[in-house]
Amino acid sequence: MKPKTLKEIKVVALLLSLLMVPILVTSHMRENVSLHTPISAESLDELAQTYRKSGIERFLDAKRTLQKRVSFNLKNDDDSKAQMAAMNIAVYMFPNLLHDTHLEKQYAEEHFKPLQDRIETVPGTREAQDNFEELRNLVWNYENPKQNEQGLSEYANEMLKIYGALSWK
């Protein structure tokens, strides 16, 4: 290779790396801002709205982003409210994020997760609706077997709203 060409490559590489620095910093900051956004049952409502407005692909993207936020907030000892919200969202959406000693992990992984995965694979079909019916009954038995006026927890309700929407379109 000619020395001139080599020099040109070096200059281009330097310029590119200079360009990459602000891009990476911005991306990192954006991710950090997203992780630090407050988390609550409303985060699940936002997820349901994403599906209604933008369809399954955007929903799955938004779900992945929420998973990162839940993961971050589960370890956030500075904010107990956010930590509790993250724990509840994890039980009903991301049980794999729960600590191995958390006693709800096994049940949620074995019972809720497989049904949710199946609904996401074939949204709006009879199969999805059957799976949703099963999911709904499991959650009632898990939280309020008498199905009395106490109802379900906020997080269980929001999760069922999401998968109800996915099942019935």
Partner: peptide, 19 residues
Amino acid sequence: KLSTGLGQFSVSAFFELNH
């Protein structure tokens, strides 16, 4: 009522036993 009988069974309890 939503839950009835000796053991106050609800729809979800019936679902579990049936399925």
